[in-house]
């Protein structure tokens, strides 16, 4: 065969649809990721609020009504207020995201960022304000030495747990979404050459 004949064979191939993008499926997946990130954030926020309110009430019931009891209750409720303030801000922020594939992806990343930030600063906004008054309360009330150890042990156990959750769950999930966002946004035309 001459080359022209080869070209004729080539040109005769029909252009039937071989592949199609199911864009709706991709968007559904991204929405599911956004909703998952949203759910995790909601569970954490509401969980913290419930814990703060309930702990305060329990302290009021079982406490001895000393200055340090009220200080502990005040501190734990302040933590609750801080969580509530953060939640209201986050919800306001989420309204600014576009209702699109990229917007949903940005929202999911923003929610995960929120969780990462919360985990990183956990010691300062939760442990110190909540446990310091509790420790003072225990010390002031006297009692066996092992009771005094409860607070530092709680700190020692909770910090690595929160960090573990951040490293094993939030950061990998963020990287995954970030990679997907980059793939959708970047331009490859100048990057690759034969």
């Amino acid at each position: 065969m001459e080359f022209d004949e080869l070209k004729k064979i080539w040109d005769n191939q029909n252009n039937q649809i071989m592949y199609a993008i199911d864009e709706a499926a991709l968007h559904r997946r991204i929405k599911a990721k956004r909703d998952h990130a949203h759910l995790v954030t909601n569970v954490n926020e509401i969980g913290l609020l419930v814990v703060a309110v309930a702990t305060g009430i329990i302290l009021l019931i079982i406490g001895k009504g000393t200055f340090f009891t009220y200080l502990s209750v005040g501190a734990i409720w302040m933590v609750g207020l801080y969580v509530l303030w953060g939640r209201i801000h986050r919800q306001k922020r989420s309204k600014h995201f576009e209702k699109s594939m990229l917007g949903d992806l940005e929202e999911a990343i923003s929610n995960i960022d929120n969780e990462i930030k919360r985990a990183r600063t956990f010691v300062w906004w939760f442990l110190v304000p909540a446990l310091l008054p509790a420790l003072l309360n225990i010390v002031q009330a006297g009692g066996p030495w092992w009771k005094w150890l409860i607070v530092p042990v709680t700190v020692i156990l909770s910090v690595p747990l929160v960090q573990w959750e951040m490293r094993r769950k939030h950061i990998p999930r963020r990287k995954h979404l970030e990679k997907l966002r980059e793939k959708l946004l970047q331009n490859p035309a100048d990057q690759l050459q034969v």
Partner: peptide, 13 residues
Amino acid sequence: EHWIYHAESANRD
């Protein structure tokens, strides 16, 4: 992220 599907393949020469 499987987001494609195949359509019918063409009759081939």
